[in-house]
Design a binder for these strands. Structure first.
Lengths: 181, 181
DNA sequence: AGCTTATATGCAACTATTTGCATATGAACA
DNA sequence: TGTTCATATGCAAATAGTTGCATATAAGCT
């Protein structure tokens, strides 16, 4: 289960609370693993039970107390073990592909609207990622270690968004060409 | 929930049993939506309860009886409604990206092995899809309706596998270049 | 005679994820 | 003064998906 490992990864190097983690998952991390705050809090409790993270309460007056977590040595070992085991390709679960497959049963106009919307979403995400790339990795050739891994995973995210932009455009173009005849 | 709709789509035009569907999901359909036979049988019962499909038992002597399903008019309407509602982009859940993000915490050699393995898997899947494309759609410019949708979703699958091939190669090349210095 | 493969269906238990709700405070805004 | 936003944590219920097991027959292999 990679949510646990995504959390462990995020937690290495800095102590974070569930709330902090939820924000990371909304921003950078979320581009390749999505998780809600409810899920994160639950997972953190489980990780604590398994002694893969340590919890520490930071008292606050104005706001609710924070519970910050750090990775234990067992947690780091667990991460390494996980990485050594064979990774399964993520099952593809893409509504749009199913809808596309159903063309003929659903109206072409409906599909076209979905494709255009998805294209706009992917463009927006791509822009975000490109800004992130320019900001965090201005000189990729100098990267190594931790930063290199983060750069490469970001590159994966960029490719992923471009895939959907290009595919939706291929579909739209094909549908347009067919529609005219 | 798109599993239900993937099933409804597959069922339109021909009656199929759970077993037949499971085979489809293993072959073509499964390239953009995965489902186990247990899940398919369960979903079929639910669809029948909701009167979106009709069930019919075909008795057999040598083998267990088959239960074949066909889509009802309510099922077709449900499919159209689903397609008209806004589709969410599939949440990205890719172990490899998380592992890559964790480089520095996990050994580079481990990551490299995962990347190479994934590259090989994606190449294999791509080949399968390319064979399928050549076989089913020898003349794409002539397609329309149902077949066009199936062709375009297959094109999405092709792009998807190419994405992973290219990305794993970018990663390997970058890691190699860094490793030498 | 025993093993595997293919056909055909399904339950049960577990894990993962989503959705909705609940609580509590301070600051900014209208 | 009421509303919304940001901070901060979590429970409960439902849905979705995985993993393991169970059953039954026939054909082909060893």
């Amino acid at each position: 289960m990679a949510l646990a490992h995504a959390i462990l990864t995020a937690l290495t190097g800095e102590e974070l609370s569930g709330y902090d983690l939820a924000k990371r998952f909304d921003a950078s991390l979320g581009h390749f693993w999505k998780a809600s705050h409810q899920q994160i809090y639950k997972e953190l409790s489980k990780l604590e039970q398994r002694a893969l993270v340590d919890a520490r309460v930071i008292e606050q007056q104005a706001r609710p107390d924070r519970i910050v977590y750090s990775v234990t040595e067992a947690g780091r070992a667990n991460l390494r073990d996980w990485a050594a085991a064979p990774a399964k390709p993520a099952p593809v679960k893409e509504d749009l592909l199913v809808m596309c497959h159903a063309l003929g049963l659903i109206p072409a106009a409906t599909l076209r609207a979905q494709l255009m919307k998805r294209n706009a979403q992917a463009r927006e995400r791509l822009e975000t990622l490109e800004r992130l790339e320019a900001k965090l990795f201005p000189d990729p050739s100098a990267l190594k270690g931790r930063a290199l891994g983060q750069y490469l995973s970001l590159r994966g995210g960029l490719r992923y968004e471009r895939l959907w932009i290009e595919w939706t455009e291929e579909c739209s173009a094909t549908l347009d060409a067919r529609g005219k005849r």
